[in-house]
Nucleic acid binder design. Structure first.
Length: 418
RNA sequence: GGAGAGAUGGCUGAGCGGUUGAAAGCACCGGUCUUGAAAACCGGCAAAGGGGCAACUCUUUCCUGGGUUCGAAUCCCAGUCUCUCCGCCA
């Protein structure tokens, strides 16, 4: 959410900056509503002052007049509220401004590779896809999931289920023990207000799974990422500066409708309605965002290093960034069966964009300022499972276990079909 | 599910129709003292929004939404949440 005053005073900058984000903003309408809004506020306040003075004077002869004034106020107030809500509506659908250092571009093709790490194995045979491997092992069952639940779900069974759990535990332990994060086991549902805070609402309601409660007006949403619930832990409060930075980690299921991605990645478990993800969230002083983004991204790459998976780090261009982000690094892991890199983590700084929506502030000496918020996957568990299957496969279809995961797998070193 | 109690500033907590935006304490900031720190003492300190170049000023806000009243943190109604007790159940 942007500050109206900022838009008013830096209109050209906003126009220019947002033009690279594939978003259409009706500036005229916003400025017009803003003007009307302020006019109404001024008129209303004039009456309010008059009324207040009468009331203070306790002069009974003016009481009748005061009643009339009340009507005027009510009238103006109604109008003003309508204008304000229209204005808020428009405002809440404007994405964050990309930082100047973010490359300008239209879509994913304009993202820029920053670094490449790890060694891509030279397979002496044709590497299978994760779903071929999983089905051969009898440990990934998509048909069964279709039967019980529908498309874009999967049953992970036996040793692969254990591997999935091992991945998650290894990641969390690493972030807690080595990277200074605090583990959280949060609710998996969130209210409208919470979803608004991180930017899922109002614009992306169609991507969310809604849960109905008994009371018709009471609904919740399944979280599409733990970012939502972790970031909102600081909403509506003024935090003691000493508590910053806050670094939080959670491993949770995530739920996404994947609306608009019909036909995309329909095979396998690349794109599911439900998947596990280890999420990192940082709440920092707002001038620490860039520093923290680098740190957070390193925490994620370290996991890939430890798992000895080949990957590259890219910086997203203006057109490919998420709604709330001001700068984003994606980590992409190598998938031999596709012969290309696929996203496995996304680390973003949102600056104070989400903080303004959430009203999350901190006291800096005697100034009240909005916090900075960052989120990153460290990493997507399902996709890490995929990456391990594919990169660690042997010719007979069995999978070796990455060294760091062995302690989490009862020290077995191989998963095979017998 | 049944019966009570409550929701006030960053926190604790008074106030229960008229200079109350709100006592007091803690925290925080500035100062005196000190070689430095602590302690002690003095002073400052709610937020959001509007107007003004500025000094400053106005409005709103005591969980949320309605209502009563010239006037509401204070009274009434509805809702949300929290706590205690009973019942039920992972």
């Amino acid at each position: 959410m942007h500050n109206l005053k900022q838009i008013r005073e830096n209109l050209e900058y906003f126009k220019k900056s947002l033009s690279h984000r594939n978003s259409e903003v009706n500036y005229e309408q916003i400025l017009d509503l803003d003007k009307k809004n302020r006019q109404l506020i001024q008129e209303k306040e004039k009456f309010e002052m008059e009324k207040k003075n009468i009331s203070k004077s306790k002069d009974e002869s003016l009481f009748e007049k005061s009643k009339e004034i009340s009507k005027q106020i009510e009238n103006l107030s109604k109008k003003q509220k309508i204008i304000k809500s229209e204005l808020d509506n428009l405002l809440s659908s404007i994405p964050n401004l990309p930082l100047d250092e973010v490359p300008i571009g239209k879509d994913e093709n304009d993202n820029i590779e920053v670094t490449k790490s790890g060694e891509i194995k030279d397979f002496k045979f044709k590497p299978l896809s994760h779903y071929e491997l999983g089905e051969k092992l009898n440990m990934l069952d998509f048909d069964l999931a279709t039967k019980t639940t529908g498309s874009r779900f999967v049953f992970v069974k036996d040793k692969l289920a254990a591997l999935e759990r091992a991945i998650s535990n290894f990641m969390i332990d690493t972030h807690i023990q080595k990277n200074g994060y605090t583990e959280i086991s949060p609710p998996l549902m969130a209210t409208d207000e919470t979803m608004f805070g991180t930017g899922q609402l109002p614009k992306f309601e169609n991507d969310q799974f809604e849960i109905k409660f008994d009371d018709k007006n009471d609904r919740k949403f399944l979280i599409p990422t733990a970012e939502v619930i972790l970031t909102n832990m600081v909403k509506n409060q003024i935090i003691d500066k000493k508590k910053l930075p806050m670094r939080l980690v959670a491993s949770t299921p995530c739920f996404r409708k994947e609306a608009g991605s019909y036909g995309k990645d329909t095979k396998g478990m690349i794109r599911q309605h439900q998947f596990y993800k280890v999420e990192l969230v940082s709440i920092v002083e707002n001038n620490q965002c860039m520093q923290e983004l680098e740190r957070m991204t390193e925490c994620a790459t370290k996991i890939l290093d430890d798992l000895k998976l080949p990957y590259r780090k890219i910086i997203l261009c203006t057109g490919d960034m998420g709604f709330g982000a001001e700068k984003t690094y994606d980590l992409e892991v190598w998938l031999p069966s596709e012969n290309k890199y696929r996203e496995i983590s996304s680390c973003s700084s949102c600056g104070s964009f989400q903080a303004r929506r959430m009203k999350a502030r901190y006291k800096n000496n005697n100034n009240i300022e909005f916090v900075g918020t960052l989120n990153g996957s460290g990493l997507a568990v399902g996709r890490t499972l995929i990456a391990i299957l594919e990169n660690y496969q042997l010719e007979d279809g069995s999978i070796t276990i990455p060294e760091v995961l062995k302690p989490y797998m009862g020290n077995i070193d191989k998963i095979s079909n017998n």
